[in-house]
Amino acid sequence: MFNSLSDRLTATFKNLRGKGKLTEADIDGTAREIRRALLDADVAVPVVREFIARIKARALGSEVAQALNPGQQVVKIVNEELVGILGGQTRQLEFAKQPPTIIMLAGLQGAGKTTLAGKLALHLKNQGHAPVLVACDLQRPNAVKQLQVGGQRAGVPVYAPHPGVSSETEAATGDPVAVAREGLTHAQDKLHDVVIIDTAGRLGVDEELMRQAADIKAAVNAHETLFVIDAMIGQDAVKTAQAFNEGVNFTGVVLTKLDGDARGGAALSVASVTGKPVMYASTGEGLKDFEVFHPDRMARRILDM
């Protein structure tokens, strides 16, 4: 189990070396190894199936048959296909022609949205923008305070007209949709050119909360809706990504907790089932632990190469 894919493929290819041409049976063994590696990396089963079919088709073609080293050629194909799905070129945030640009964050509970809000704010501020954070999670205990601390650390103001749930207000009250709408007006008044909206975590199956997220998005006409997803997620990535895609039609993905040792196959699952680009990686709890997503690095990580 702890053998890396490259180890295993090297072993498989040892037998193939010098054969020049690979037979379907040769390819089957290789495909099994790749399948296994993808499953160990938490790539979703249907995504693995489709991926393997494509690899097999290409591996049986002439590019492999005519290669000097068919094994390496297969590795190259696998890598190319992975990078292809992961987006090849990564996309950056698109700014609205008429500021403010409105960026909304959405995702499962605990994925890293509020932390990301602070990171994005700092990143944009450092690029010369004047962002404002809007606290629309009125549900998780002290989420508003958490965002305020993040904003303070980033040196970015936080619009938080409602305290949300705290020890003084233990039940959820206040309307996140209204806060988002007012937040936009506030940003326009104060001439902020970017608005970052933090929302409560929600499950893909929670129709009511998913509708709320869609309502927030519609109320402010968000330009970018970022789906924030934990790199440690397993097979549930597909269902969750689909639910959020249907719910809020996100425009990009942020993969969090990449400073961990999870292989992060979810990146492949999400990109593959939604076709939406992974734009950023979150790589720690600190405000600066944030970077542009690199498909090629991610491909190597998933394959453990």
Binding site: G110, D230, M232, G234, Q235, D236, A262, R263
Partner: peptide, 10 residues
């Protein structure tokens, strides 16, 4: 977290 994949073992 129930959504965790194979990293849960580690």
């Amino acid at each position: 977290d129930a959504t965790t994949g194979q990293n849960g073992l580690s």
